[in-house]
Write a protein that binds this DNA or RNA. Structure first.
Length: 276
DNA sequence: TTCAGCCTGTCG
DNA sequence: CGACAGGCTGAA
């Protein structure tokens, strides 16, 4: 899915274009998607007339604050949120037309939520409930977590490092791409046990994580297949990937062919020589 | 703690 | 045609 850098990019795009905009109409294209997830169609319609005052993100989730409500998006593997200004082409020629779930018509243009594989989610809470909800469902955001918190979380951790870092309740935001890239940069084997990491390892992991996320956001995220930013444009960070999706290719450091394993159901690519 | 299941699309 | 893909859940 869109992982942290992709969702952060979308957040910035939408904030710039929609801050202060008024919601004029909610057009539901796929009611089944919503009702299956326990969202009543009327609760969505009730948002009409609200002003978008704020956009928040924790991990891979994004919340539009509309008056006293929070409309929370989780983009799954293939969800997208694309804004088209009133002056741009209409959604009839929108490439994801077939997969549209909801169209939010604002005074400044339309926000199109689509999801090819329908692994995404949409939820409405009161704006006050949002922080509580996120703090129960998610660990600290990987972009903002302090070094002290990160180290203490990892020191209390158990099991394989890859699985641990993918757990959103532990740390929110990393997914399969960024965990593979991070472990390569930090020279840590994906099957290494968290308990076995030294303080030095943890420090390195923390700094590499921040740097990786910073670079990925500056290149507007990774587009492997379907991801597009808040304007419908692909990201560029995939050109900087060192291991993800590169099984069998030479390690950029030592030239050894990159190894591929299936770990807890996720494809995992790494260098068997550089990563210990 | 695995693992199918949720979905659609693409690639070999 | 089967295998696989940025994720997560809940049932066995």
């Amino acid at each position: 899915m869109p992982e942290l850098p992709e969702v952060e990019t979308i957040k910035r795009d939408l904030l710039q274009r929609l801050s202060g905009a008024k919601l004029l109409e909610v057009e539901i294209r796929n009611p089944d998607f919503l009702t299956k997830r326990g969202l009543s169609l009327s609760s969505l319609q009730d948002l009409v007339g609200a002003k978008l005052t704020e956009i928040r993100r924790t991990g891979k989730q994004l919340a539009l604050i509309l008056n006293d409500k929070a409309l929370i998006f989780h983009l799954g593997l293939t969800g997208s949120l694309v804004f088209k200004a009133s002056s741009e082409a209409s959604e009839s020629e929108f490439p994801l037309e077939k997969h549209l779930i909801v169209i939010l018509h604002f005074d400044r243009g339309t926000l199109l939520f689509s999801d090819i594989r329908k692994f995404g989610n949409l939820k409405i809470l009161s704006a006050e409930e949002l922080s509580d909800y996120w703090s129960k469902a998610l660990g600290p955001d990987a972009l903002y977590v302090s070094k002290d918190d990160f180290v203490s979380i990892l020191k209390r951790g158990k099991g394989q490092i890859k699985k641990f870092l993918l757990d959103q309740k532990v740390l929110a935001g990393l997914g399969n791409i960024y965990v593979d890239e991070l472990l390569f940069r930090a020279r840590i084997h994906p099957e290494r046990r968290v308990e076995s990491l030294s303080s030095e390892d943890l420090e390195r992991l923390y700094h590499e994580m921040k740097e990786l996320l910073r670079e990925a956001i500056s290149l507007r995220g990774s587009s492997i297949r379907d991801y597009v930013d808040g304007t419908g444009t692909p990201g560029l960070f995939q050109t900087r990937h060192q291991v993800y999706g590169k099984r069998g290719m030479p390690c950029p450091i030592c030239g050894t062919p990159l190894k591929f394993l299936n770990l807890h159901g996720r494809g995992t690519t790494f260098c068997p020589v550089c990563q210990k």
